[in-house]
């Protein structure tokens, strides 16, 4: 037995020796290249540009902005497209607006703030990229936390038709947390999953829970280098039955569904879309979307993002 092993070993060694004599004396260019490749393959290659912007349509994406970069967001949601030509010019006569700014503290961490004309609401949020997709890891995970303040006069009438009274300022607050999980499958296709938790300090009726869980799905498909299709759906785990039993009225809120396109022109990203929601912050569009696609409550809207770099040596010109 041991003799056999020795024989095999001998054969291997002899073969190796002959092989060595055959190797040309110099290390060729290709071998140098191989050595470089080996060296470089140790570092993971991170996936870039899973999505075009920090927002998909209404909701956020896993993307954060780079350190010392500032993003200005201007978003509009017009009136319902079925609101008539004479009466409302297919909805373009009126618009809900959100203006927002976000700033990259590090390449992975951003802070943002905005103001929506819907319910005159201020929102503040922070986003942190916890895990990054690379050739060694399958997904990117970003955490989002947000806070909003409703500054409407007490006793105003909500979009759902209900009257909202605030007894103190604390009741004006809403909070949300979101885990954004995305994978860029290839150059064109990226998909995202968004488990969400929202807490409303005050809801319009006692039969509506102050806490709301939701699960969002979204994705994009690049048609060309500058033109991208996107879609987003948030399933809210609310309890319409309890509301209907308590009030005898139909539950006013629906799941938010949006489809759109992203057009990139160097310094700007234009997002044009159709959605059944007029809210542009999580607490509005996930939990309080009044429109429904079946009834034709479809709103045309757009987001425009402009990025400025405050990094040394950068000039803020379009590329």
């Amino acid at each position: 037995m041991s003799l056999n092993i020795k024989k095999i070993l001998l054969a291997i060694l002899l073969a190796g020796l002959i092989g060595m004599l055959w190797i040309p004396k110099s290390i060729a260019q290709d071998d140098l290249m191989k050595m470089l490749e080996e060296e470089q393959s140790k570092e993971p290659i991170y996936t870039i540009a899973t999505f075009k912007a920090t927002r998909m349509i209404n909701g956020q994406t896993i993307e954060t902005i780079s350190k010392n970069h500032l993003n200005f967001w201007m978003s509009h949601r017009f009136g319902a497209v079925n609101s008539g030509f004479i009466a409302n010019f297919f909805g373009l006569d009126e618009a809900k607006i959100r203006l927002g700014l976000e700033y990259g503290i590090t390449d992975k961490w951003l802070i943002g703030a905005g103001r929506s004309s819907l319910e005159k609401t201020y929102d503040f949020y922070t986003k942190y990229k916890l895990l990054r997709q690379s050739n060694k890891f399958p997904i990117t995970l970003t955490g989002l936390a947000g806070w909003s303040i409703n500054t409407m006069e007490t006793g105003y009438v909500m979009e759902s038709g209900a009257e909202m009274r605030f007894n103190d300022n604390l009741e004006r607050f809403g909070y949300w947390g979101q885990a954004l999980i995305a994978r860029k499958f290839n150059e064109k296709l990226s998909l995202q999953l968004m488990p969400t938790f929202i807490h409303y300090n005050k809801v319009e009726h006692s039969s509506i829970d102050n806490n709301l869980l939701a699960l969002g799905f979204g994705g994009r498909y690049k048609i060309t280098k500058r033109f991208t299709l996107s879609g987003e759906y948030y399933k809210a785990f609310s309890d319409p039955g309890a509301y209907e039993a308590a009030t005898g009225k139909e539950y006013p809120y629906h799941d938010a569904i949006s489809i759109g396109v992203d057009i990139e022109t160097g310094g700007h990203v234009f997002q044009l879309h159709f959605t059944n929601s007029r809210g542009m912050i999580e607490k509005h569009f996930i939990g309080q979307t009044v429109g429904s696609w079946e009834d034709g409550d479809i709103y045309y809207g757009f987001n425009i993002a402009r990025t400025f770099s405050f990094e040394k040596g950068a000039k803020n010109k379009d590329k």
């Binding site: 110099s26 470089l36 060296e39 290659i45 870039i48 160097g266 040394k312 590329k319």
Partner: peptide
Amino acid sequence: GCIINATSGELAVQLRVTDFNFPNKLMQEH
């Protein structure tokens, strides 16, 4: 990365395109 074989004069240079650093990160992405 770069390797030069000083004996034969052969050399190889390789870099990752994503390692190029731009002051404007939007440009870098584009």
